[in-house]
Design a protein around this nucleic acid. Sequence first.
DNA 1: ATCATCCGTGTAATCGATTCCACGGCTTGA
DNA 2: TCAAGCCGTGGAATCGATTACACGGATGAT
Lengths: 341, 341
Amino acid sequence: MASIKDVAAQAGVSVATVSRVLNSHPSVSPGARRRVLAAVEDLGYRPNAVARSLRTDQTRTLGLVISDVLNPYFTALARSVEEEARALGYSVIIGNADERPEQQDHHVRTLLDRRIDGLLVSPADGDSPLLGDVARTGTPMVFVDRWMPGVDVPVVRADGHRAISDLVAHLYALGHRRLAIIAGPAATTTGNERVEAFREAMRAHGLALPDAYIGQGDFQAASGRRATEHFLSLPEPPQIVFAADNLMALGALDAIRARGLRVPEDIGIAAFDDIPWFLHTGPPITAIAQPTGDLGRAAVRALVDIVEGRPPQSVTLPARLVVRSSCGEPALPAPDPRSNV
Amino acid sequence: MASIKDVAAQAGVSVATVSRVLNSHPSVSPGARRRVLAAVEDLGYRPNAVARSLRTDQTRTLGLVISDVLNPYFTALARSVEEEARALGYSVIIGNADERPEQQDHHVRTLLDRRIDGLLVSPADGDSPLLGDVARTGTPMVFVDRWMPGVDVPVVRADGHRAISDLVAHLYALGHRRLAIIAGPAATTTGNERVEAFREAMRAHGLALPDAYIGQGDFQAASGRRATEHFLSLPEPPQIVFAADNLMALGALDAIRARGLRVPEDIGIAAFDDIPWFLHTGPPITAIAQPTGDLGRAAVRALVDIVEGRPPQSVTLPARLVVRSSCGEPALPAPDPRSNV
DNA sequence: ATCATCCGTGTAATCGATTCCACGGCTTGA
DNA sequence: TCAAGCCGTGGAATCGATTACACGGATGAT
């Protein structure tokens, strides 16, 4: 592959001049510029990003470590992150943690070894001292969706309080009183917050959230299935199962089907995170939609702000309730049950 | 961040010795090794992958350009690719083409600029002379899922002939005669093959595939919706709509719902690509499952074979039919309607 | 005892870019 | 006319690693 030396030789100039042309430095004569450009074209020359990065100490690359690529929520997030980054002249390297802290740390380390300019993380369950260390060394870093308390970096996330309170009001209006939740791992912020918001909203309606109605999940489908099976074996099963993410909702649906029960007649389902498939499940699932695209874009902007030396901003955007029919027919159907995720 | 020089100074040796320790070169004295390791630990030193790549001319990184990250089939593929690559000591950088050739080319170029060791591509619709050029320059490259005729690189893919023929037999047995297909873009190999296999299987049952029953899609949900709307407006609509990928099946489901029709009573649906969600749609969708994990792994192995100088192999694995209820109740229900994707 | 060999180590070249500094030629102002 | 300044350019240092080569000392064979 042609190097800058080949171009210089072909154009009859020094490598310094070639570099100047390529970086549009002003002091290059029109003639030299023309000859360099011709040589570049002729040789099909493309600058070696590796060499350039070594010299300039920047890679124009962002790292994104997500908890689970198979989760449509994170895929959607990854897509918007990549788009915004590309618009700002950065590439993105995605690492999939698969909800496993060791794998998350593996990716963080590889990304750091590659000297990415900044890191976007949605931390997995379990504590990882590494992330704290990384933040402390001054590597530009931003949390997206989930964050870690005690690590002082900007956080870009959705706030579900309002939407969860709307959800509980909706369920209450439909006559449901026994509401259960499948929680995410306690160590993730999103896991806790959603339970707390749910409990609070129930209290506002004079309802209690008994421990038996709190299932421990790990954001994966299998855990949703297990938790739901347990709910269904209770002497008094809940009327509604609210899953703290979309995959656990899927597992819940499985468990309910396996028992031969119907949704929503026998038991209702709702989920945090709205994804296109929820329109097509039987029945369509009532969900809380996050502004995924906006979150991804805001996260990239915050990170690039840090990278480029501007003051970054934490961002919190509201999630909103999308009512469908998985908890029973709503009294007043929403004008458009389709989410705009 | 500490460099190899800092480690050398701290350990009281030269950078050469440090490098030898790090690369487990045999001729280093135990004492020196110990001091170097201590210094590495002490400084939290991690080798700079950028510098190393520049010198060794290899990045131990593979590029993967997929057609659409929002398509669960490709996400599953990406996941298995990353896993296998990690097991073999490589990292993966994913580029999302969004079914757009320019965006695909953008990613290919960026990946090449970064001097990835090899490229895994599932080419998008539309011709891209770039890929051919890249292959010709000797960059290690492997096609996965889709390929481009005339570009001489190994192809790792699933063969759907048998499964499609099974599908048509299944539909025929259920009494369906008017079968329609939503094709992928003509320029993609998978697009064409699936239509041809379908046509051939129909002919084997004495059925014709009229042009009106061939919808032109682009592997995106919206095109599946449009094609299905067109089918439904025909004087004699088909009894079954077979979508050449999962997203178009989703679009088809949309269109059918929008007309207030029921699946499978009014019209049946089947899809190429099986994804977890198809178990949960209303009704569960009959689909053709690709051995996605095996495909991803085989593709990585083929690519790494090229990179490391071994002779690579093209691989074709059979897809298989997973019967569910979206085309009517099967006479003999399959023992386990759950796909093992 | 002598010479060849081997082992552990350091010096320095190298990868492909960017960029500081110096230099020669030309313009411009006094 | 001459000094000062500017402009286009090239030489060379530099980023952080790897690795060929050289070298001194110890070991082993004869």
